[in-house]
C-alpha cells in the first residue's frame, strides 16, 4: 500500500492556534480537515508537508445556520452533514444536488466542505455550486478576518485566496436567491462516467425571476470545463433582464459553451466537454426554473 512520507502532526486547539502553528512552521505546513484530498496526495508523495495541523476538533468551524441575510456553512461541515441539512436544502436545493454526486456516502462522512473548496480541483463540484450562489469565503489569519467573494477565491487549479498561514472559516451564501422566495431556485447537474467519479462536466444554475418571468438574478457555475472562477459570466449577463424562455436558455447555454476552455483527458475530448457545458447549463437552468415556479414550465 502507498504510504505518506514522514511529517509532524499537531492538533489545533483553536483557529488562532492553527494559524500560529502555520506561521511557526511556514509554507511546508498544511491544514488537514477530512483529509480525503490531501492524504491520497501524500501517499502518492505528490504532497510532502512537514507538518499537518489537524482542525477536526475545532467546533467553531462546524455547523450550518442562518445568520441574518446569509446561510453560513462552517468549513469543517462534512459533506454528509450538508446533504442531510434541511435548512441548506430548503434554501439552496442545488447544494443537495451537488452533495448527492460528490464521491460516495462513506467519503462524504469524512470529507469536508472547506477541504473541498480549498483543494480547488477543477473537477470539484462545490466550487461551481458556491460560485453560482455568489457565496463569500470567510478567511482568518493573524491579521484578522477577510471576506473573499467566491468569484475571486480561485487563483487557478489547486490555488486559492487562502494564504499559507490562513484558515478558511466558513462560507456564507446570501439568502437573496433562497428557494423559499417566490420565483427563485437552483439546481446542479453532473455527467460522470460512473457513480462517485469526478465530473466530466457539471453545471450549477441559480435563478430568480419576477412575476413577468424576467430574470432578475442568475448564477451559472461550470465544473471541469475550464471556466474562469467556475462561472459562466457571459451567459449570466445574457440572461439577466431577459424573459426566461426556452430560446433564451438555449442561447445562454451556447454562450456558456463558447466561453469555457475545457482540456481533453480520459473523461472526454474538448468538443464533447464544450458541448456538455452548454447542454448541462441549459438543463440546470430548466431544472432551476421548474423548481422556482412550476407554472412557467409550460412557457419554456
Amino acid at each position: 500500500m502507498q504510504v505518506p512520507a514522514h511529517f509532524e502532526y499537531q492538533r489545533a486547539t483553536s483557529v488562532e492556534d492553527a494559524i500560529a502553528l502555520l506561521e511557526r512552521y511556514g509554507p511546508e505546513s498544511r491544514i488537514v480537515a477530512g483529509g480525503h484530498s490531501l492524504i491520497p496526495m501524500m501517499k502518492l508523495r505528490l504532497a510532502q508537508p512537514e507538518l499537518l495541523v489537524d482542525i477536526n476538533g475545532l467546533a467553531d468551524l462546524g455547523g450550518i445556520s442562518l445568520a441574518g441575510d446569509v446561510l453560513r456553512i462552517g468549513a469543517m461541515v462534512r459533506h454528509a452533514e450538508l446533504l442531510a441539512s434541511v435548512t441548506a436544502g430548503t434554501h439552496f436545493p442545488l447544494l443537495h444536488d451537488a452533495e448527492r454526486v460528490i464521491a460516495d456516502p462513506v467519503v462524504r462522512n469524512r470529507g469536508t466542505v472547506g477541504g473541498s473548496v480549498c483543494q480547488a480541483d477543477p473537477s470539484e463540484d462545490l466550487s461551481a455550486a458556491f460560485t453560482a450562489l455568489r457565496a463569500t469565503a470567510v478567511i482568518e489569519g493573524s491579521a484578522g478576518v477577510r471576506r473573499v467573494p467566491m468569484r475571486e477565491f480561485f487563483h487557478g487549479p489547486y490555488q486559492t485566496a487562502v494564504g499559507p498561514a490562513e484558515v478558511l472559516v466558513e462560507l456564507q451564501i446570501p439568502l437573496s436567491n433562497s428557494a423559499t422566495l417566490a420565483g427563485s431556485s437552483s439546481a446542479y447537474l453532473k455527467v460522470d462516467r460512473r457513480a462517485g467519479d469526478w465530473a466530466v462536466a457539471a453545471a450549477a444554475a441559480v435563478l430568480r425571476i419576477d412575476r413577468d418571468s424576467v430574470v432578475t438574478e442568475v448564477g451559472i457555475g461550470l465544473t471541469a470545463v475550464g471556466a474562469r472562477q467556475f462561472a459562466a459570466v457571459e451567459a449570466e449577463d445574457f440572461l439577466r433582464g431577459r424573459q426566461l424562455t426556452g430560446e433564451h436558455i438555449a442561447e445562454a447555454g451556447d454562450i456558456a459553451a463558447q466561453h469555457c476552455s475545457p482540456v481533453a483527458d480520459q473523461r472526454g475530448p474538448v468538443d464533447y466537454k464544450r458541448h456538455l457545458a452548454g447542454e448541462l447549463a441549459r438543463r440546470a437552468l430548466h431544472a432551476a426554473a421548474a423548481r422556482a415556479d412550476l407554472a412557467i414550465i409550460g412557457r419554456l
Binding site: M1, G35, I39, V106, R110
Partner: peptide, 18 residues
Amino acid sequence: TVWLDRVPVKSCTVLAVM
C-alpha cells in the same frame, strides 16, 4: 471501511493519530 465515532469512514484515508 470501519466506524469512527459511530460513522463509517475509509480507514486508508484517516491517520491513526487523527
